[in-house]
Each structure stands twice: as structure tokens, then as C-alpha cells.
Amino acid sequence: MAFTVPSPRPPIDADPARWYERELGWTTEPGPPVRLVTGLRFDVLELPAEAGRAVLRRVGAATGPVALAGRRMRLLVAAGSAEELPGLLDWLEWGGIALDLAALGDGGRMTAPPPPGWGGPGAPGAAVWLRAPLPGREVESSLPALRSAPWGDEGAPCLVRLVAAAAAECHRARLLSARARRPAAQQLFPQRFASS
């Protein structure tokens, strides 16, 4: 006879803010919803979820923790990365191109997903961890960083590679979206699209 074991539940007095502060050393703002303060221990790259899924396929586990909130994906990166994003995009020759790619850095806030193992599915569009940070590990050393060995952690993933993939996938998602809208415009204004 088989039976199902229910998911572990947090203690009745459990507070997600305290969990983030105690287990990970991250600064929070009490909620609801609890918000994680960016720019101190980590920054966030935020992009459309569709583009984010493609980035995860391209770069694999080198992304570090990843959260999903509605139609937006949030990739945690090393603190200070948000300041580097505009220059890095220019260097990668994405400067001046409209990308739906943003960074949260010093003074930013991110809605905190429930800690791993806490509760069931939340409200539609609520923040959830796709790749949760692991308590008991130095999370910051595993985040994508601009500097690699010998200046940083040799095993840390590379921010340049992550941003290059994110920019390409954001641009691809934008082009596909524009292509999907084009047939409707052609139906409304057929004389504009008639060949000569």
C-alpha cells in the first residue's frame, strides 16, 4: 500500500524575512511581501521569462540562483554587476539597441520568493525560485561575476557570458514578437504590403 508524504511545512511562527537573514545573510524589508534588498550581497538581471528560459538552456547551471515572478525572470549576479551592465552591453555591441533587460543594484528591491520547501503554489504570478540559493554555502561566490580567476573565485560563472546570452535572447524574443504582430498589420493595411 503506497502513501504520499506531505511536503515539509515551516514552523507556525516562521518568518521568510528571518530565514533569508539568518540562513543567507541577506538584507530584507518586511512585507507582505517580503522584499530582498539588492546591491549589498547580490544584484539582479531581470528579463522576460521567455528569454530567460532560453538563457538557462544556453548557459546551464552557470547562472546561480534564478527566480520567476509572473512573466519576468530574475537572475542573481554578483553585487556591483548592475553598474557594469551598460558598459558591458556597449562592449558586447548591444549598446543603443532596445532590449527588455534591466538590472537591480544598489538600493533596489526584489520580491522574495518563499524559501525552498516553504508552502505550496502561491497566487498566479507570485515569485518562486527556479534555482534556489543554498543555505550553508557562500552564495555570493557562486554568482556570475565580471572578474574571474585570479581576482575572483575560479569556479564562479562569468557575467560577460551571461549578459551576452541574455542580450541575444531578449533581442530574439523581441524580433519574434514583432513577427507575430506583423500579419495582423498586413490584414489591416494590405495596400502597404502589396508587392509592386
Rank of each mutant, 00 (worst) to 15 (best):
M1I: 06
T4M: 11
T4G: 08
V5G: 00
P6A: 13
P6E: 07
P6R: 13
S7T: 08
P8A: 15
R9H: 10
P10Y: 09
I12A: 15
I12K: 11
I12D: 14
D13I: 02
D13P: 00
D15G: 01
P16G: 09
W19L: 03
L24P: 14
L24Y: 09
G25S: 03
W26P: 05
P30M: 06
P30T: 10
P32Q: 10
P32E: 11
V34M: 05
R35C: 09
R35F: 01
V37D: 00
V37G: 02
G39V: 01
L40E: 13
D43S: 03
V44L: 11
V44M: 08
E46G: 15
E46D: 11
P48G: 13
A49H: 09
G52C: 05
A54H: 12
V55S: 12
L56C: 12
R57C: 00
R57Y: 02
A62K: 13
G64T: 01
A67S: 14
A67M: 04
L68Y: 06
A69E: 15
G70R: 02
R71Y: 05
M73Y: 07
L75F: 13
L75G: 09
L76C: 06
L76E: 03
V77I: 07
A78S: 14
A79Y: 06
G80H: 05
G80W: 07
A82I: 04
E83I: 00
D90R: 15
D90F: 03
D90C: 01
L92C: 08
L92Y: 09
E93Y: 04
W94G: 07
A98T: 04
A102V: 06
G105V: 04
D106M: 09
D106K: 14
R109C: 01
R109G: 06
M110I: 04
T111S: 10
A112R: 03
A112V: 02
P114M: 07
P114C: 02
P115E: 03
P115T: 01
G119Q: 08
A123T: 09
P124E: 12
R131W: 04
A132M: 05
R137M: 04
S142H: 10
L143V: 01
A145C: 09
R147T: 00
R147Q: 10
W151L: 15
W151A: 14
G152D: 14
G152P: 02
D153E: 15
E154L: 12
L159D: 09
L159W: 09
V160I: 14
L162D: 10
V163W: 11
V163H: 12
A164I: 00
A166S: 15
A168I: 00
H171Q: 10
A173I: 00
L176P: 00
R179V: 12
A180G: 04
A180K: 14
A180V: 08
A184H: 10
A185Q: 13
Q187G: 12
P190C: 05
F193V: 01
